[in-house]
Design a protein around this nucleic acid. Structure first.
Lengths: 258, 258
DNA sequence: CGATCCATTGAAAGACTTCAATTAATGTGG
DNA sequence: CCACATTAATTGAAGTCTTTCAATGGATCG
């Protein structure tokens, strides 16, 4: 629990900043194209870029903080802790994900956000969010899309935790993160994607104990359906593991990027 | 499983329709005020009103259907069924809740929506949703707010199912629905609110078996913390049950109404 | 009055958690 | 460069929460 709260280290020279127009994420088919004027607006909306180390608490639970981010590079997760110390990971955040919408609904953040890896983030001032709706209704529409899409992911997590067996939950998590990672260009030539999470993270995301997570994951890895080594995940037979997990396809292409 | 899919019975004479301006929900402090011109827009946006009987399937899982509704009166729930027949209730819908945003994200609806009681709904044509963003950015902003708020509720359900004990989950569900119902004016002079759900619904929402739900609910009701009779719920000691459930306050006032 | 839905309860079985302890890997300070 | 602390993964064993199976009673309905 020695994590720092956002020291807000901005990226030094403007040279280090990524111009929205040349944002590497925009080249992916995962994201829908925007018009030049929309991208210009986003560029002006953007107030800076942050480079933060792994384990940084980007948002403290209950903290008063209204800032919006887009995760450019790196992984993070959203979580909530109960008074007995139990932590539920609500979802994982990957490049392209938008952070901070919910915090606008109440004074203090209903959940925490922590980085799993070092990360690069675009920062946006929340006070100007409404300008976005006013000046570019299509971007406002996009923000709604993003919010609804994120809910679909949480819905699916809820279905997992509520109805799937431990083995299915783990399979589901692996397929889900594999696909999301692949969709943002993280799949290497070896067909593997990075999976920068510990078994404790899995356990907290799936509502399982660490021990049971370990035993069940081990059982899954003993088959040749998938492989998890050195923080990289490879799914050898997508069909089989999807059926095992009772996987339900989520829309991952053509989503908006702010 | 003999539920009909939306027969789309529109309300007969225009006399039966509720003019948005005089919408009874707008008088509640649960909802934020809108300008005259916003309300006018919503009125024009609205394509009709439906009166449907309990148990109607408003939205079939996997169905191709793009329609938006606001629940005016009555209760409903959103759910997803796995291939083994297990059903997870994702959340409950109460008056004022907006229905159908997520369906825009993929061709077929990722979940079903079923009515718990007979209900009155305002219908909106999805094709014109973008007009709303263009003509009234503030309403677009509201729609995002609604989407984000709904996710907060699902987040909380996920925390319950993932981390709370059976007793806590049930307590949590009761407090949560009690507060939501009360916030939309459903609390009677006796301090009780309607709770039109069976124990099977509770079980499906909480990821518990029916039997265990029954035993645990029984255990809770044997205390004098709460009372559930004839489909009405009364919480005698809100503080105690909130502590038991490790309840976390959700923003329930001043939310937008479309 | 039989059919159906919902609630209830006992008992046995099973999935998952907790407790406890070990190994491996990595980092830190002297 | 080595001792020591820390983090993560792993495994066995015991205990408990939850599920499944089975059966009953009450209420409503045509």
């Amino acid at each position: 629990m020695s994590n720092d709260t956002v020291p807000h280290r901005s990226v030094g020279g403007s040279a280090a900043q990524t111009p929205c127009r040349r944002c590497p994420l925009r080249r992916l088919e995962a994201f829908a194209a925007n018009s030049e004027s929309e991208i210009d607006f986003i560029q002006r909306f953007k107030s800076g870029e942050l480079l933060l180390p792994a384990k940084t608490t980007l948002r403290e639970e209950g903290a008063f903080s209204h800032e919006l981010f887009t995760l450019l590079e790196g992984w993070a997760f959203r979580y909530r802790t109960l008074s007995n110390g139990n932590r539920q990971i609500i979802n994982f955040l990957l490049p392209g994900d938008f952070i901070g919408l919910h915090e606008k609904l109440s004074a203090h953040s209903p959940h925490g956000v922590e980085l799993l890896t070092s990360a690069r983030l675009c920062r946006f001032p929340t006070e100007r969010l409404f300008d976005l709706y006013r000046e570019h209704p299509s971007l406002g529409y996009d923000v709604t899309w993003i919010a609804a899409h994120e809910e679909l992911i949480v819905d699916e997590n809820l279905v997992s935790v509520g109805q799937r067996t431990a083995l299915q939950r783990i399979a589901m998590l692996l397929v889900h993160l594999y696909k999301r990672a692949a969709s943002v260009g993280l799949k290497g030539p070896d067909g593997a994607v990075p999976l920068p999470i510990t078994q404790q993270h899995m356990a907290d995301a799936l509502g399982l104990s660490l021990v049971h997570t370990n035993k069940t994951l081990r059982r899954l890895l003993r088959t040749d359906i998938c492989e998890l080594r050195d923080g990289r995940l490879r799914l050898r037979n997508l069909g089989v593991i999807e059926r095992l997990a009772d996987y339900n396809e989520l829309p991952l292409k053509g989503r908006p990027l702010i």
